[in-house]
Amino acid sequence: MKKLINNPQHVVDEMIEGYVKAYPEYIKQRNENKRSLVTSRQTPDNKVGVLIGGGSGHEPAFMGYIGDGFADGVAVGNIFASPPPDPILETTKAIDKGTGVIYLYGNYAGDIMNFDMAAELADLEEDIRVETVLVTDDVASVAKGGEDQRRGIAGGFFVFKAAGAAAAKGLPLSEVVRIAKKANSHTRTMGVALSPCSLPQTGEPSFELGESEMEIGLGIHGEPGVERGKVQTANDVADRLLKDILHDMPLEQGERVAVLVNGLGSTSRMELYLMFRRIEQQLNQKQITIHRSYVGDYITSLEMGGCSLTLMKLDDELADIVDYPADCPMFVQK
């Protein structure tokens, strides 16, 4: 696959360089560790630090979400690989204001080990209180009953946003954690992949899909999904994704949701709006209210083809959190 890159070994560092240069008013890179990015703005005293992260290749996640009302810092891993403890620890030190730091990331073995190591070091060496909330929104990854073992995918956007808003409101660590956990437990995602991406190092597709095949539930790093079949219409795919989500998280008539239709990288906006159109029709018919919608590329997998649907079930607290403004390089909400 053709890519506009230089040395494949340096893509991540070069990307960060470009990113930091593009948004100096938002972001700075720590001298101590180039994979540690933090807000360049003055944040309020006593604000709980919000640290998100994971592998690269999911842009605009995670580094695009550093800013007011969102994250204070990001630890950047290699492509699709957890960052090591070093940049996590460095970011933790930089954003801690004495009131503790919350770590938010997808539920992957590699990330857990690295973030846990960093949390241990933060506690032991720096005396910083760290709490962790894992994102586990991918309905396709583990059957009902095993919710807390699920992978974290696009729903992370809502969980990060929830923690970011809660922290920006000045809530203490315990509250930020409670709200993030609540956001996660109210969030479900189902995805569909149409075409693979390729890692710059190998140039090889991350998985194989036939000329006219799609895979329901395929993970954002190419982890296999639940079902492979012929590509269906946007309506049928939307219905399927919605059905699986509603089966897992039933919604009553009159309830409110936030909707995210997330492109995986190379899917046109046109297709995403076709998907949203059907979702809206169906929810409308079930008399479920869409409180706010997000349609676009929020958490990608390089140039993977396909999309995911995320619903977050809202109560007043979460609706408030969703509406909270944010100002980040790659995401602004007024």
């Binding site: 592998g55 891993g77 290699n78 690989a81 957890s82 960052p83 090591p84 403890p85 070093d86 992957y108 073995a109 590699g110 080990m113 690295n114 190591m117």
Partner: peptide, 15 residues
Amino acid sequence: LIAKVGGASGPLYGT
């Protein structure tokens, strides 16, 4: 290994 491998195997081999 902890600093450079990343993923799950970095911390595992590193530990």
